[in-house]
Design a protein around this nucleic acid. Structure first.
Ligand SMILES: [Mn+2]
Ligand SMILES: [Mn+2]
Ligand SMILES: [Mn+2]
Ligand SMILES: [Mn+2]
Lengths: 223, 223
DNA sequence: TAAATATTTTAGATTTGTCTAAAATTATTT
DNA sequence: AAATAATTTTAGACAAATCTAAAATATTTA
């Protein structure tokens, strides 16, 4: 019934999905950069995906996934994020170590495996980076979150996601005792360097840089 | 440092390893049959593996893995069997369902992943089919086992492995309440059809066919 | 031991995914 | 609106893994 896709095709489908979330129309060079390949190779693949009805594409006009393409992308992302959750929760991997491995695991084809894994993990809704995990029908849980830099003063909020998965960020957050789920509020914003003073519930306040604040996402808590 | 092998190469290395356990020298057609491919394709791959010093091979003379080749094979088999154990113990897969999935999972490259998985699973020594799991240095646990058909009369023994992974065998064993670890002895052997009468500890005796007896392996228990 | 048969290897294609270099198209400047 | 620059596509090549058909070698049988 449903077509089979190679690992190469799946990697293209996934990256196009991610790019079209922010971009209206995805373009060749973006994909080439993201996949560490050349524009000519991308064009080759675009033709193939178009022919497989996975992609809406007219040459020189940019492109987006078709509905069918989005479904495939979401299935791959589901696998990626569930495996990341598994690695962190069950195998004690750090945040910054899981992405590469999940990049391979996401291509394992068994649907039964991934649905059983989901149950085994307790149907998690968010991966270790706070990114939403699509359910087995491809539906994404909605998380109303904003950038920490945009959080109103003295409003309690909970850290819900991070915008980077680097070891460096993880180091810093560990040291500051900030993790996903941490409750905090912003006491003051400084115009000089755009740093902000935050207070974690039950701790004394401290300053964080603009750069860090921009990398953190929070879910405002109602009172 | 250590070379990288493609999935195709790994599948050849693994099958050659298995074949050379029973065969003195492995030959082209055997490999072709086992991998569902053609003899010509096998020859192509043999040249490549020889050149990579993984295989001792002279044309028309048969072949065996080199020491380096065996190490690689054992690493793949370790992954395959640990994943099978995971699927059965943690995700409630049946015996007969795990092989295909493990065939894919065995090619995931992260050494850290597999060593952590090993710990997570409690360092199992045998997979769900009773096959030994190599440790992280490639050493195989030794299991002194014999075919049930060769077990002496009235000697207590424990089922340790099965020689097939089919749904059909699993069905039969479930019905007879035989699983790995089951303790039994042979009461009588019948010359007419080579069937044998066995008695599971705490149950009444019954007959099993020669074919089934030949598919079961047991570890004789001292006294 | 010579003929017949089976096995293995080579020769030449094919598919997939990639690349470089050049051509075509689109976008941006003057 | 040209000219210039950037992007995208095409043309042609290559490596990996596979295949079929034919040739080479080894094994078995008579
Ligand atoms: Mn990937
Ligand atoms: Mn993630
Ligand atoms: Mn495999
Ligand atoms: Mn097994």
């Amino acid at each position: 019934m449903s077509q089979h896709f190679s690992i190469a095709e799946e990697n293209y489908i996934k990256i196009i999905y991610h790019l079209q979330q922010t971009d209206d129309n995805v373009n060749t060079n973006e994909v080439a950069a993201a996949l560490n390949t050349k524009a000519a190779s991308v064009t080759d693949m675009l033709k193939k995906l178009k022919q497989k009805k996975i992609l809406n594409y007219e040459k020189y006009q940019g492109f987006r996934l078709s509905e069918a393409g989005e479904k495939i992308a979401l299935a791959i992302i589901r696998k990626h994020r569930l495996w990341e959750f598994f690695l962190v929760e069950k195998l004690q991997f750090g945040w910054d170590e899981v992405h590469e491995v999940a990049e391979e695991l996401e291509h394992i084809t068994s649907k039964k495996l991934i649905d059983r894994l989901d149950v085994f993990l307790g149907n998690p809704k968010f991966d270790p980076h706070g990114d939403p995990i699509p359910d087995s029908n491809g539906k994404l849980p909605h998380q109303p979150q904003i950038n920490l830099i945009d959080l109103a003063l003295n409003k309690l909020a909970e850290v819900s996601a991070v915008g980077s998965q680097s070891k460096e960020l993880l180091d810093l957050l560990k040291h500051k005792k900030i993790r996903i789920g941490t409750q905090l509020e912003v006491n003051k914003k400084f115009a000089f360097d755009h740093s902000i003073e935050i207070k974690i519930v039950g701790q004394t306040s401290f300053n964080i840089s603009q750069q860090l604040a921009q990398t953190l996402f929070v879910k405002p808590l109602n009172k």
